[in-house]
Every structure is written in C-alpha cells, then in structure tokens.
C-alpha cells in the first residue's frame, strides 16, 4: 500500500507510458534511429486531430497514429527515407480515389504530415 511519503505528483502517468513521444525518447536512448511524424494540418473530416504523432524506428517499427490506419504504411516508408537522408519532409494525403486507394483517406478529408528525424 502507498504510504504518506508518496505524493500524488509522484504517481507516474499510465497514459504517458503509452504515448508515442515517450516511446520515441526510450527508443533513442536504446540507440535506435527514430523519426517523428506529426499531423500539422487537416481539412474536412480527418480521423486524427492536428498534433497527433506517429513515431517510427529505423527498422520500420511504429507506435501512435496520424490517420487511424489509412496512410500509416506510406508515412512509415517515407520516415525510413527521412531517417537515412536526415532532412525533414512534408507529406500530404487527400481523398482516396480508385487509383490512390492505398494511400488515401476513405473519410474524404485531407491531412498534412511533417516527418522529421530525431537527433
């Protein structure tokens, strides 16, 4: 049982333990290459709000989400390029049509995602 010597402020946040940016910090400390993807703009119906993060390591492992699953695959492959090239990139995803189904948003919105290397 917790005692009086433990304060409310000292209780670690379980929510932050699953947070992509906290996971990214842990990955970097392990010496892994990391990219951080951030939703910076949305138009229309977008599945994840501005500020949402997806973090990717050099082997393609990822945590978090920028679209609820619609474009994560494309963001991960761009992130691997950013990790090797170093320079950040701005990605834009729009309405899915038949030819672009695999990298579109079926909800009909548009999003811009900023991908940058950590470190």
């Amino acid at each position: 049982m917790m005692t009086q010597s433990i304060e409310l402020a000292a209780v670690p946040s379980a929510v932050l333990a699953d947070d992509p940016l906290v996971i990214a910090e842990g990955w970097a400390k392990e010496g892994r290459s990391v990219a951080v993807a951030t939703v910076v703009e949305t138009w229309g119906s977008a599945p994840r709000p501005v500020g949402s993060h997806l973090v990717i390591d050099g082997e393609g492992n990822f945590e978090g989400s920028v679209s609820g699953g619609c474009v994560e695959g494309a963001v991960v492959s761009e992130a691997l390029d950013v990790i090797s090239a170093g320079a950040p990139r701005m990605l834009e995803f729009g309405v899915a049509d038949e030819t672009a189904w695999r990298v579109g948003l079926s909800c009909g919105g548009r999003i811009r995602v900023y991908v940058e290397k950590l470190g």
């Binding site: 119906s45 977008a46 599945p47 709000p49 679209s67 619609c70 079926s106 909800c107």
Partner: peptide, 8 residues
Amino acid sequence: GPSGSTGG
C-alpha cells in the same frame, strides 16, 4: 477550438 472529427 474544433478538434478532429471521426472518420477515416
């Protein structure tokens, strides 16, 4: 302000 709506 408005946050992201659901969809996707």
